[in-house]
Design a protein around this nucleic acid. Sequence first.
DNA 1: CGTTAAACTTGAACCTGTTCAATATTTTTT
DNA 2: AAAAAATATTGAACAGGTTCAAGTTTAACG
Lengths: 210, 210
Amino acid sequence: MTGLRTRQKADRKRRILAASTQLFRSSGYRHVRIEDIAEIAEVSVGTVYNYYTTKGDILIAIVAMEVEEVLAAGETLLATPPAGMREALQALISHYYNHSLNYLSKEMWRAAMALSIEAPLTPNGVLYHQLDERLRAQVQALLASGQAQGEIDAQMDTDALGDLLFNSLNMMFVEFVSDDAMTLKALNARLSRQLDAMTQVWTSAAQVPA
Amino acid sequence: MTGLRTRQKADRKRRILAASTQLFRSSGYRHVRIEDIAEIAEVSVGTVYNYYTTKGDILIAIVAMEVEEVLAAGETLLATPPAGMREALQALISHYYNHSLNYLSKEMWRAAMALSIEAPLTPNGVLYHQLDERLRAQVQALLASGQAQGEIDAQMDTDALGDLLFNSLNMMFVEFVSDDAMTLKALNARLSRQLDAMTQVWTSAAQVPA
DNA sequence: CGTTAAACTTGAACCTGTTCAATATTTTTT
DNA sequence: AAAAAATATTGAACAGGTTCAAGTTTAACG
């Protein structure tokens, strides 16, 4: 049987995370004070800091839950990709986008991104960056599999193209969360146009001789 | 003749900016306190806030100087681009990169980017975003001119390709300043590989019939 | 010049994330 | 089950960005 202390610890940590998620979504990350979280979680301010090293650490824990989910869905999609590279890429990336506001508000994403950029060497920043790299690897893996099946010319540098595409989808996501008025539909449309432009290249290489 | 008050104002603002630039570079943005800036600029803390609404505002003022310079250089390059789209893009973007540490340290860039993301609606955030858009427009303009001269197939969506490329170069710059160990050389090499992958597409469309 | 109004400066006070010495609780030992 | 050790909790104190009421300096006017 687990000790009393162990159970209390797990329970407190859960309460702090639940209180934070609730408050961050309803009042905004910035506006929420550690004191508010402590009150709802029924612990003291000091205790919050026993479980999470900074306020940003709590936020990144929530981001990690979100990203782990889309990574898992991405694995499934990679295992049985839709027919056609254009459609497969769209499906994968749109899923990233469409899932993004399940746990986090745009304001929370902004705060999380700002944190990871400003302090890349903190545990927070490192974790955020690792999650990003795993997403990038999925996009590259999808392109590589398309090349293996002959959908993309063998001479193409799919790692570089995947890098290019991932950087762009990531930056578009930054702009999406930076603009409260921008809809998911508009974001997907922008992606779609870029995918068209990229794949136009492959198809034109295959279909339009000089 | 300018009034005494007007002269004193301009002088104080200049002193605050000079003190800030010096301190940010030597001690790091984070580490510098408004009190330190006030002391060197020979004003009080409250006066600093009369001239710049926040600490971040001072930083963005420095960023703006930096970006205006590379924008001006970009205009010159657009007027007489090097031969070959691949080389012209490389020249333009490398200039952005190579110029970037003239006034700002990596740590200052990180702080500025974090600011612009976290608070996109503040005057700071808006200004930063506008500077970004002007850089994006230069990349797109260069591609459009290449298309006008027949270097890029007329069917290609150069605005979308420029969008894609700019997003990526911007994200690579974020990663560059997020990693103190990364050199400009490594950054340019990464760019170069992406440009190869992108232009491979155009050249393969022109040279490698199906 | 003296007086009044306008503009500017100042630093003490405020706010909130974070730390840490004192206290309390749980576990282990005897 | 008492004592000792280990582990957690707590809230007051600290730090630095920001605000603002009071004071000071400059300009405008008679």
